[in-house]
Nucleic acid binder design. Structure first.
Length: 423
RNA sequence: GGAGAGGUGGCCGAGUGGCUUAAGGCGCACGCUUGGAAAGCGUGUUUACUCGAGAGGGUAACCCGGGUUCGAAUCCCGGUCUCUCCA
């Protein structure tokens, strides 16, 4: 959520920045500012009235103590009207606050200066590329056929037991998952991220804190009986650790990581590019999160990007990095880099990681602050990235490292999996 | 699932309708004292909104949300979390 201060101080800059997303927030912002002015006006009146009313109450208290009952009763009469007024004003305040909040949380984050205007994925900027695209032997298979041939993943069984998008991993397929998770967690640990095993369900407050609610409710599985949501990413529980927290400046940056399954309804996804592991309702992911000082958050973003490069290079997967354009970026992000690996049999670039700086957008919702050198509370910056999401990594590993007889496991991964080949 | 007890500042803890502007203690910061330190003494030590150039002022907040009352940490209702016991 944008801060109301940023709108008061420089609404033109905000409107300008949002235009890169092809969002025209002019009327919403004008409306919010109007309500904000009304709210302040109302508060001034209310505070004044309450001050008077408090004074009268103290007077009554004094008179009662002295036993002057009639005098006290007389003063009581004066307070009746005042009470009605304060009740009205309090309601008015609540209404205005709620209206401001409702509109404010529908306005997305302002893109960083480096983000270009654009409508869709075609306008994203490629900022880096690494690795050779492998030439596969004749008869090379897409990963879903390899998974079937070597009995690594059973999609049909998942459909039977749960539904489409919930595969079973088995045998070396399961071990490969476990090995990747271990590798990613160990690398995050070495890079100074503290490991967590968070809850897989979150409450509505947490959903609001990181920006999944109220807007993207339909993307999460919702247990209505207890009003809990299955996490779409570990970002939600990990970042919400710091909801309503005043952190110490010298503790920054705070670096967290965690492996979790992720659950996404993927409502609206259809047909194309959803075969096999390309798009699932449940998948595994290791997430890295940083809570950082505003002055240093962009250096931290770079370090997260480097961390992910290291993982992909260790897995010997060719990748490219895209800086998303305004129109393709998530609602809460100020800047996002997507990592895509090349899946050689499908001949497709697959997104395997998304790294973002949210600046103060989530922090404002979370109320996560630190005390600056001037002693005043300031919002932190939050960042996160996938390091990494497993299914598409597995897809690319299987496809790119296949030969006539089987699949080669990259050297760096062998120790974690416990085998060198799948055949 | 049932019964009971409880939730007060950074921490401990008093407080059962108005001299509460939340006692007292611990911790922390600064000062005095000291050769230096400790002890001692003194001062200060929450957050949000808001008014003000500033100094400073107003309002709100004792788990959350309602209610009773001129007035609520305190009484009532609902929720939530923790603990104990039972199933």
């Amino acid at each position: 959520m944008l801060t109301i201060q940023s709108l008061r101080e420089d609404k033109d800059r905000v409107i300008q920045a949002l235009s890169k997303r092809h969002v025209d927030a002019t009327s919403d912002i004008e409306q919010v500012l109007e309500w904000d002015a009304a709210r302040r006006q109302t508060q001034a009146t209310l505070d004044d009235l309450l001050a008077q009313s408090n004074a009268l109450s103290r007077e009554i208290g004094g008179l009662m103590r002295e036993g002057k009952k009639e005098a006290a009763e007389a003063v009581k009469g004066k307070t009746a009207e005042m009470r009605e007024q304060t009740t009205d004003l309090k309601h008015r305040m609540h209404e205005l606050e709620a209206s401001i909040q409702d509109v404010l949380c529908t306005i997305p984050n302002t893109p960083h200066a480096d983000v270009v205007a654009g409508k869709s994925a075609e306008d994203n900027i490629e900022t880096a590329r690494w690795g050779e695209i492998p030439t596969l032997h004749a008869g090379a298979m897409p990963h879903w056929e390899l998974a079937d041939r070597f009995k690594l993943i059973d999609f049909d069984l998942g459909s039977k037991v749960t539904g489409a998008g919930f595969p079973f991993y088995r045998g070396k397929g399961a071990k490969l998952q476990r090995g990747l998770i271990r590798m990613f967690l160990d690398c995050a640990d070495e890079a100074g991220y503290e490991e967590f095993i968070p809850p897989l369900m979150i409450n509505a407050e947490s959903g609001f804190g990181t920006g999944q609610l109220p807007d993207k409710e339909g993307q999460m599985y919702h247990d209505v009986t207890d009003d809990l949501f299955l996490i779409p990413t570990a970002e939600v529980p990990l970042t919400n650790i710091y909801r309503d927290v005043m952190v110490k400046e010298q503790e920054l940056p705070i670096k967290l990581c965690g492996y979790t399954p992720c659950f996404r309804r993927e409502a609206g996804s259809y047909g194309k590019d959803v075969r096999g592991l390309n798009r699932l309702h449940q998948f595994d992911k290791v997430e890295i999160v940083q809570i950082d000082h505003p002055d240093r958050s962009y250096a931290s973003l770079d370090s997260m990007v480097d961390h992910i490069k290291g993982l992909l290079e260790a897995l010997e997967l060719p990748y490219r990095i895209l800086r998303l354009c305004g129109g393709d970026m998530g609602f809460t992000s100020a800047i996002t880099y997507d990592f895509e690996v090349y899946s050689a049999a499908q001949k497709l670039w697959l997104e395997v990681s998304s790294v973002s700086n949210f600046e103060t957008y989530q922090a404002n919702r979370l109320k996560c602050r630190f005390k600056g050198s001037d002693g005043k509370p300031q919002l932190v910056h939050t960042l996160n990235g996938s390091a990494l999401a497993l299914p598409r990594i597995v897809a690319a590993l299987l496809e790119n490292h296949q030969d006539e007889n089987g699949i080669r496991i990259p050297k760096a991964l062998q120790a974690f999996c416990g085998f060198e080949r799948i055949d």
